[in-house]
Amino acid sequence: MAAFLSLGVALLVLSPGQAFAQASENSQTLSIPQARAIARQAIQTGNIALADQISSALLQRDPDDAEALLIRALSARSAGALDVAEDAAAAAYRASNNPALQFDAAIMVADLKARKEQFTRAELWLRRADNVAPDERRKEIAARAFRNVSRLNPLSIQLRFTARPSNNVNNGAETLEIELGGLPFSIDPSGQQLGGYEASAGLSLAYRLSENETQKTEALAELYFRKIWLDSRAKELVPTASGSDFDYGVVIAGVRHQRLIWPELGTSEFTGLLGNSWYGGEELARWGELQLRQTVRTSNVQQLRFGATIRSEKNLDSAINSSESFA
């Protein structure tokens, strides 16, 4: 049985399409699809009040009417009520199982986030739009919008995750017996290869501090952690060992500055980094690094890169292994 919606005399006066009317002197009775069609037409013709009135009536009937929520979002955005528009578009995305409608809703939320300079959140919604895009044309729309927002976003985030089994989670030796200078030596059992499982997660951040036609400066941060679990065979070989003995973590912070010192050559880049690492729950090393890079354009499509790195490292588990290097 078809659902119908009764609207009062104000709708009859404001309606842009009398062809939809099933008239009485004081009211109209419209099917739900007809009401939605009138609301869409009202949006297109700029009759925001009518679109909002119809969406309100539809949502009184069904608060999870995704199309009505999207119509409310469109009318609210046109009226400048951006927070209302964002909430309605997000609700439409969640309420719908129609990929095309979800795409439109996600694109709208991304647009509203970008208007409020919430660029990272806008990028997340554009990824959602890409995931539900029902065709290549919409995928290209989402990709183009993502590129535009990324250029505006001062924050760049990269995430990495891995998980895998390994027959050598501790980077150990293949045998307990080694030969040095013709003499046999035995190594500690915990130094042999141990099997198990490893999972790692990495986070890279870059935040643009300043930028113009000739220079860009960014703050950098890097986090990495690898977690180890020993298998039953490894626990038999070394009963005193635990997976946490081989956990590894790194924290890096720094600044990168790029500048066109010699515009005819290419970009000059200077990067300073400070790092700290841990192994088995104990601090392993601290280091500082200075990187110098120069790009030289050889044609419109080719370029050469030259660089040098100065590094000073202090190994906290053994001062003997501390070093300074230039490459």
Rank of each mutant, 00 (worst) to 15 (best):
S268Y: 13
A92G: 08
F225C: 00
S96Q: 05
S24D: 15
A37M: 10
E140Y: 04
A90W: 07
A145I: 02
K235E: 10
A90Y: 04
T214F: 08
S277V: 02
L183N: 08
F161K: 01
L50W: 11
R36T: 05
W125N: 11
L101K: 09
A21G: 07
F185L: 09
L316H: 01
I141H: 03
L7S: 06
W287R: 09
F326C: 00
G17D: 14
R297V: 00
V238N: 10
A234M: 06
G195T: 06
E218M: 08
E117N: 08
A133P: 04
P33E: 05
A143M: 08
G8T: 03
G243L: 02
L260W: 05
S75V: 06
D64K: 15
E179G: 01
G191F: 12
S190R: 15
G281L: 08
Y207K: 07
A91W: 04
P189D: 03
I141A: 10
R311P: 02
R164Y: 13
S24A: 15
G307A: 02
I54D: 11
Y279R: 14
Q60G: 11
R77K: 15
G172D: 09
V149T: 10
V296P: 01
R286E: 11
S31D: 03
A163F: 11
L152N: 10
R151E: 14
D111I: 04
A201Q: 14
R36E: 12
I228N: 08
L7A: 12
L69E: 03
I261Q: 06
S27V: 01
A2Q: 12
F146W: 04
D111C: 00
P189N: 04
E67S: 11
L284A: 12
A57L: 06
N167D: 15
A253F: 09
D130Q: 15
R256E: 12
Y248M: 00
A145P: 00
L273V: 02
G196N: 10
M1N: 07
R77D: 15
A19M: 06
L230Y: 01
A122V: 03
R137G: 10
A37Y: 04
R94Y: 04
R61D: 08
T295P: 00
L205T: 06
L70G: 03
E198M: 12
P184D: 02
F326D: 01
A89R: 05
E117Y: 05
L74Q: 15
D65K: 13
A327R: 10
T29M: 11
N97P: 01
I261F: 11
D65S: 11
Q60D: 14
T309R: 10
V238C: 06
T271N: 06
S24K: 14
E140H: 07
I43E: 09
L82Q: 12
G172P: 05
S27W: 00
A90S: 14
E313D: 09
E86D: 09
N276L: 13
I320N: 09
G272I: 05
N276P: 00
D64M: 13
V132I: 11
A221R: 08
T45I: 07
Q192A: 08
F119N: 06
D135E: 05
V301G: 00
M108S: 07
G195K: 07
R293S: 13
K227T: 12
